[in-house]
Simulated scan of single mutants.
Amino acid sequence: MWWLYLYVGLATAGILVLGALAVRLFAEVQRLARQVARSTDDLSRAADRLSRAAEPLAERAGDISRQ
């Protein structure tokens, strides 16, 4: 009969370990999502700055090609 208690104890320990790993995974996924969002914002700002910086160059290039 002791083997039944052993199996139940091992199964419970396994479920607890899986639960702890799931909590850690959830925390890491949230951290990764925040990092992706921050990187997306940075890229968006950089694209806006690049577009604003390229506008005068494009106008000058258009003026040169028309001459």
Rank of each mutant, 00 (worst) to 15 (best):
W2M: 09
W2R: 14
W2P: 09
W3L: 13
L4K: 15
Y5T: 07
Y5I: 07
L6G: 00
L6H: 03
Y7A: 15
Y7C: 15
V8H: 04
V8P: 01
G9V: 02
L10S: 00
A11K: 01
A11E: 03
G14L: 00
G14S: 08
I15D: 02
L16S: 06
G19R: 03
A20N: 05
A20H: 04
L21D: 08
V23A: 04
R24Y: 04
R24C: 08
A27R: 10
A27W: 03
A27N: 09
V29P: 00
V29Q: 09
Q30C: 03
L32Y: 06
L32A: 06
L32N: 09
A33G: 05
A33E: 13
R34A: 06
Q35N: 07
Q35T: 09
V36G: 02
R38G: 08
S39L: 08
S39K: 10
T40A: 15
L43K: 11
S44L: 07
R45Y: 12
A46T: 04
A46S: 04
A47L: 09
A47H: 10
A47Q: 09
A47C: 09
D48R: 13
D48Y: 07
R49F: 10
L50G: 14
S51P: 01
A53Y: 04
E55D: 13
P56D: 00
E59T: 08
G62I: 03
G62L: 11
D63E: 15
D63Q: 13
D63I: 11
D63T: 11
I64P: 00
I64W: 07
S65Q: 11
S65Y: 05
R66T: 02
R66K: 07
Q67W: 11
